[in-house]
Design a protein around this nucleic acid. Structure first.
Lengths: 221, 221
DNA sequence: ATCAAAACAGGTAGAATTACCTAGACATTC
DNA sequence: GAATGTCTAGGTAATTCTACCTGTTTTGAT
């Protein structure tokens, strides 16, 4: 019987050790690499003479978070299948990780048997999506065309308007001129946006606006 | 026990009758509508006082083909779950049907038991994708992001790095510190980006970077 | 009619961006 | 060896952004 080699990257030592115990209880699994953050993981992978088959990857880690790790692994160690561990389970997030070539998505509160089944399925079929994830994927495909209104942030109509224009590369004075208001007012609205959306600067606003389709920007080339 | 009401649309009478016999052999299924092409199907649906739960839809039909039918059904009879029957099994085709809200995709040479299982799964979970279809969906998600990035713009590695950090809301001084270079150098790179990508400001850079997936940004809330 | 929220607008100040320059170090290519 | 391209980094200046204030007017809802 072929033994499935597993790497675990998670900053919580307890979780990591627990998972290792659980997995090593199966004779077909062997946890070969443990890392408390991305940098450590990458180091170990580069040093390893035999790569793991599967990487259980926590998203929230210090030093180098799961997304950065996924990118490096995807580039340097493409053969390793990434199974994402997370408490975060929103559609956009899951889709994002699949785009980063995650082959499965496991909630952190999963049962040990689910984890084992997922690993086996990934090893055999190359990927495994449970019904929740499948539903999200489906919604994602279907909703691609629809521009859904956004209720998650309570922006006022004016704020959305300002946000839209910011995304269209207008500066505050330009927006002011366009809307026949004072530049200071535009400033005020932008500050409210930064505060409401918890962003550092316009870059953050634009990212959020696009990710959540709060604004519509025609594709440019 | 709830009986699952089924409609079959297929131009081949033999296939249609055969399928009907097979399905009606299960006591939980009842084939209520048969149609040899789309027009006929739509007519029957409009006349029906009780809509079917599931529509087995052949794609190749005279008069009105499966894709047009799917569009009409999606619009007028949204509750009906469409299971696509086809010999045609290319990725683009399958994805296209899912976008048209097909909830399952069955090869025409499937085993009767597979058909029955698919129908049950659809009735219970709302959709059912077998491994082939799942693989296609997965490829579709991944291929969207890959490839392109490098082609359309010739950004240097350093420029992409800077662009990434800009999108992550780092200011020039912060980026400089992160990369151990002078803030002025970061300035230079950003200016090159603005010029190369023909943008007015960072907002434009971020929009372009996200639209063309030059960078990967974790979803935020 | 009253209250709260939103939109409006100004002050001040420091940080950052943007737009022009110039130019050396280094690697690759012809 | 020269040409090219990239990364590096500095000068100068105007503009813009960001973060704190303050306040009035308008609007919508109870």
């Amino acid at each position: 019987m072929k033994i499935i080699k597993i790497a675990i990257a998670d900053d919580e030592a307890l979780f990591r050790k627990g998972m290792k115990l659980i997995l090593n209880a199966y004779q077909e699994f062997n946890v070969e690499i443990e890392a408390e953050h991305g940098v450590h993981l990458i180091e170990q992978l580069r040093a390893a003479n035999e790569l793991p088959d599967i990487l259980l990857l926590d998203l929230k880690m210090p030093e180098m978070n799961g997304i950065e790790v996924a990118k490096v692994v995807q580039k340097e160690f493409n053969e390793i299948k990434i199974i994402v561990l997370s408490t975060h389970f929103s559609r956009a997030f899951v889709i994002n990780m699949i785009e980063l070539s995650a082959v499965a998505y496991l909630p952190k509160n999963s049962q040990p048997t689910e984890v084992a089944e997922t690993i086996k399925a990934v090893y055999e079929k190359g990927f495994y999506y449970n019904n929740d994830v499948l539903g999200m994927i489906r919604e994602n495909i279907i909703s691609k065309t629809k521009a859904k209104a956004n209720f998650e942030f309570d922006l006022t109509a004016r704020e959305k308007e300002i946000l839209q224009l910011i995304c269209e590369q207008y500066t505050a004075p330009e927006i002011a001129e366009k809307l026949f208001i004072s530049p200071r007012t535009v400033d005020g609205h932008r500050n409210n946006l930064l505060s409401k959306l918890n962003c550092k600067n316009v870059a953050g606003l634009v990212v959020l606006a696009l990710q959540h389709k709060i604004v519509q920007i025609p594709l440019r080339y």
